[in-house]
């Protein structure tokens, strides 16, 4: 498939330990016409369990908006786990980290992580998500050539 293809996610995952933050993100995305099916989680393990599903049950194009600071598993811990997933599963996942952090070290660690595509500030600006999704899909993701 052409690496410049613009694709819609067929599954949007929201992961935040604070239910209110998931609610706000969900509403913001809705008001920006990002209406793809949702999976809403409050713990990293739920997301990892979801990604362990058999390939034929797993959506082809997954967009994950993941909080950074969570009690048991941080967003960056989850990113590490994502790197250990089979290549086939990794290629289906695009991961954005959403956080209120303004600490440069956090932002640098997020931006440099190979499993994380970008850092987004809270409260979630859904128009930015929309803009990013209008850009060409990164190589190797969502069925594009590596």
């Amino acid at each position: 498939m052409d690496a410049k293809a613009k694709l819609e996610a067929d599954c949007l995952i929201l992961l935040d330990d604070v239910p209110l933050h998931n609610l706000i993100a969900d509403k913001m995305l809705g008001y920006n016409n990002l209406l793809m099916p949702r999976q809403i989680f409050s713990e990293g393990q739920e997301l990892l369990d979801f990604l362990q599903k058999p390939a034929d049950e797993l959506p082809k194009r997954i967009l994950m908006l993941v909080d950074l600071m969570m009690p048991e598993m941080s967003g960056l811990d989850i990113a590490e786990h994502v790197l250990e997933l089979p290549h086939e599963v990794q290629s289906r996942c695009r991961m954005f980290i959403v956080s209120s952090t303004i600490d440069d070290r956090d932002i640098e660690a997020i931006e440099q992580h190979p499993a994380v595509e970008c850092f987004l500030n809270k409260p979630l600006d859904a128009s930015r998500v929309s803009d990013i999704l209008q850009q060409p899909v990164p190589n190797g993701k969502w069925g594009t050539a590596a």
């Binding site: 604070v18 209110l20 933050h21 706000i24 993100a25 509403k27 913001m28 008001y31 600071m69 956080s99 209120s100 952090t101 303004i102 600490d103 956090d106 500030n121 809270k122 409260p123 979630l124």
Partner: peptide, 21 residues
């Protein structure tokens, strides 16, 4: 950045969605 900013960012997000809804 988390314990003070996070609740503030929640309030900001809530203000934005209250305007829309």
């Amino acid at each position: 950045s988390h314990d003070i900013r996070a609740p503030l960012m929640s309030v900001l997000g809530l203000i934005q969605i209250t305007r829309l809804e």
